[in-house]
Structure formats: structure tokens, C-alpha cells
Design a protein around this nucleic acid. Structure first.
Lengths: 254, 254
DNA sequence: TCAATCAGTATGTCCGGACAATGTGACTTC
DNA sequence: GAAGTCACATTGTCCGGACATACTGATTGA
């Protein structure tokens, strides 16, 4: 007699292509993630035990475990020893990513516009030199941009980059985000250190963002490092809080 | 003739205790992390190949790989196929954690003080009900706290909790953080959705935080979920930007 | 002299198995 | 009827090996 499961074990149609160059565990992870996204795998439902899943797919258990683990790391699945693996109930969107404002806006369907105010070389101030790890008074790129959405200014972005990393053309900066340019130049971003705060707008800031002097502004400073540990970007940004806020999901480090 | 390595392969004294209940890969990961922290493993230095490392420790390669992988996930190491595994150059502190303000302050050596303003049950507004996933007008906990540092108010915290999860005693709330209480009550936190923004202080907010009306405030809203997907907390917080800002490290999801 | 080729080395992927630890539910016992 | 006990299911850890893939540097060739 079949048990009336409260959290039923879902039977999925899964398959892997062994001739594909895509790793098997990755194929499986993608299919599981798609099934969760699509609703085939409902929250709370059990995934079926790993051994049986492996034999059904003709895979080994380590491979299946690797696929499941990657989704656990993403916060989509939860494993319980002695119980099984189940789909997380809550609406996990996406964890905090190192994304540019441009990408954020674009994925929100906003089609952002950028106006490059300054694109030049300057000698590094003490603050910039310390952040980028370059000698004081050495030459660095300085970029100032205004980000607009629906024709309204939304953020004022001021960035500093060490020399020689990539050539920054104003036209490109207006067409896409800075991170995308860096990735395209072969730089592998690794980590970033951010500080988010707030302060009252100075008269100059207020004018740039069409706010009143003294109006509250959201501020963010960031130093980004590539995987060799070099600082590749230092930015000081101010946002109009009525137009933008930082929204993200974060997972508990178990 | 030995090659003059620019990034030398470091020979560490590593050992594992097979009689310990602590997993072997975890023991190894801890020792490696300690060596990085301590400076024995300098940034840029190679870790030596996995096979040799495994045989030297009497472990299998999968176990060594699991240890290394956990540190890669933490952003401490970088693997390069055909090259080796090396210590990341930049100053990785810690990635963004789901930490309470209390823990943040305490780890900064600030010894925070908490003043509980309100600790009662209220009927859920539409906003609170939606965030917690409970019926509208059902009873929920409402907690209002003032967080002080050096005798000065720093943040005003307003939280809502679903009923029955834990009993909130004012004395406990003044002695420790909310997250610590929840963990102690057997709740396993899983993820949270946060929004950080800014706005001008209302007269009431200004008075609570001893600011002027209209002064910029840093705001944060958060819904926290446990590993079953239940919302276990909804909070609306305001911070004095002169006293507090959000600072964190984040890693690139490769 | 410079470019293409190739061997060496390291990580990436995958396999099949073994035993341990833990949570669940049914069974037994008082 | 309630509490403790035990078997079962499932994930956690670990092993030893095999081949694929990518990066590096030296050798070879034009």
C-alpha cells in the first residue's frame, strides 16, 4: 500500500548527455534548478535518495552529490541526514552578487542610460592610492558617470582604476557597465569590499542628482579585486534613495 | 638545481587526528585557514599539488580536495588548472554574513547596550502579514528596541515575529541579540532578504535617535527564513549614518 | 629570432564501493 | 497508554583509482 506522503517524493524526467562537454553534475544541477524554477519540484517536496537517483540516471553517487551540493550552496535545497533532500520553501531569488548597477537595472528591465562626465587620468590622492595599492601621486584613471533611468538621474558614480588594465573609451562606457568591460578585457573578478551608508547631499551633489542640498543620499564605496589579489577598481557612488535601494538575498554560512 | 620560485611552494607541518570525531577534511581546512591567517601561508604562495599533499597526510585526494574546496568557497584560495592552488593575495576579511547588529558591534569590541521600548503582541498589518506569511489581523510579536553604543543611540530596531516560535523576555532581549535567542531556541536560520536604503528622518524618528528632523537616516528592512522556509522575523530598522554603516566583503559567484 | 609543437604538471571530472552518523517511525515493554 | 528500544532509511565521510583538460615552459622547426 503506498503511503500518503505529505511531502511527496517527486519523480522527474531527468537525463544527461554524456557526449556533451558540459560536466554531468552541472547538467543535472541545471535540470534540477529548472524544475524548481518551473514549479515541477514544489517547495517542501523530497528529492528522492541519492543512490536511487544515481542509478536511475546511470551516474555515480559522487556525481549526483556534487550536483545537489551546488544547489544547496545556492540555497535552493536543504539536506537532512536520515530524512532526505528537499526543496527550500521560501522564495529564494538570488543571493548577493558582485553585480554592477548597470546589470541590476537591465535585469529589472529598465534599460539604463549612462552619461560619462569625466574620463581622464589624474594623479592618485592618498585615499585612492591606498584603496588601489598604487603609489601616491601615480597616474590612475578617473571616471565620473551619471546613471539615468526614465530620463531621471539616479546615481552618480565616481571610479578610479589602475593604469594599463584596460583602455576606457567613453563610447563603450556609455553603452555598457564597467564590470562587463573588465570581464571582456580578461580580468577575472574575485571579490569586493563594500561600505554602504547615507549622508546629506552637498550642494554640488544635489545639483548633479537634481535633489535639494541636505537631502538624504545613499552612498556606496567599493574596492574590487581580481583573483590575483590586485585591486582593479575603487568606486565612490551616491544614489538617490527615492530611485534606488540595495536589495539582496543572503544565505547563512552553516 | 632548484628553481628560484617566485611563488614558492610552502612546506607546512600538517597533521590530522583520525580518532577525532571532527571530519578529516574539516581538520585540514582549519589548519590551512589558520596557516593563512597566521601568515605561514603567504599570499601568492602555491599550496603544493593535491596528490602529494594527500599522500603526505595519509589522506585520499577527494578528502584533500574537499578541504581545499571549502577554502576556495570562502575566497581564501584560488585554483588554476595546470598551475596549482595558491593563497589569494587580497585581504579577505569575511564575506557577508547573516549577522545581527548585536554581533557586529560585539565583534568590533563595542559592547552594545539595548533598551527595549516595546515588547508586546499586536495584530498584523497587511505589510507585516505579507512579510511573515501569516493571516492579516492575526496576532504577532512586536518588539521595538533602541541600540546604544557609548551611551549614544545608534539604531532603532522594530521587529515582528510570528507567534509560538519563542517566548521573548525583555531581560533577555536587553542582554543579547535577537538572532542569538532564535538560534538558542533551536531555530536554524537559512536565508534572509534585505533592502538597504535611506530617507529623511520624521520628527518621531529624529527624536528617538537624537537627530534633527529631516536628517538622513540609513534604513534596512529584512525578512529572515528558517530552513523549512517559514518566515521567522521581519524587521524595519533605522540607523544613524554618522554612527553606523554596512560594511562587508562579497565574492564573485564564478 | 620567432613561432609552433610537445611533454610535463596540475586540477577537473567521474567511478564504485565502504562504513559511520543521524533522524524517523514502528515495535516492544512496562 | 506512555516511554524506551530497535530497525530502517538517508545523508555524511572517506577511500583508491582512472581519464580528461588546461596551463607552462622547453624543445623544435622555419
Amino acid at each position: 500500500m503506498p503511503k500518503p506522503d505529505v511531502d511527496p517524493t517527486v519523480q522527474l524526467e531527468l537525463s544527461v548527455d554524456r557526449s556533451s562537454p558540459v560536466p554531468l553534475y552541472f547538467q543535472l544541477a541545471q535540470q534540477l534548478e529548472a524544475a524548481i524554477e518551473h514549479g515541477t519540484l514544489t517547495p517542501g517536496s523530497l528529492l528522492g535518495n541519492e543512490i536511487e537517483l544515481a542509478s536511475r540516471l546511470g551516474l555515480s553517487r559522487p556525481t549526483v552529490r556534487q550536483a545537489i551540493q551546488s544547489l544547496v550552496d545556492k540555497g535552493l535545497l536543504v539536506r537532512r541526514r536520515g530524512v532526505g533532500t528537499q526543496v527550500v520553501h521560501s522564495q529564494v531569488k538570488r543571493p548577493l552578487e558582485l553585480s554592477s548597477l548597470y546589470d541590476d537595472l537591465e535585469s529589472a528591465g529598465q534599460r539604463p542610460a549612462t552619461k560619462v562626465l569625466v574620463n581622464t587620468m589624474v594623479s592618485a590622492s592618498a585615499e585612492v592610492a591606498a584603496a588601489l595599492g598604487v603609489p601616491e601621486d601615480s597616474e590612475v584613471h578617473r571616471i565620473e558617470r551619471l546613471r539615468l533611468a526614465h530620463g531621471e538621474p539616479m546615481a552618480y558614480l565616481c571610479n578610479f582604476l589602475p593604469p594599463g588594465l584596460l583602455d576606457l573609451e567613453t563610447a563603450q562606457l556609455e553603452a555598457t557597465g564597467l564590470y562587463r568591460l573588465m570581464r571582456a578585457a580578461g580580468i577575472t573578478l574575485h571579490s569586493a569590499r563594500q561600505t554602504i551608508g547615507a549622508r546629506a547631499a552637498t550642494p554640488a551633489e544635489a545639483e548633479r542628482l537634481t535633489e535639494e542640498p541636505g537631502a538624504p543620499l545613499l552612498t556606496m564605496q567599493r574596492v574590487t579585486y581580481d583573483d590575483t589579489g590586485r585591486a582593479v577598481e575603487y568606486g565612490t557612488h551616491t544614489y538617490r534613495p527615492s530611485r534606488y535601494s540595495f536589495e539582496f538575498q543572503l544565505l547563512v554560512r552553516s
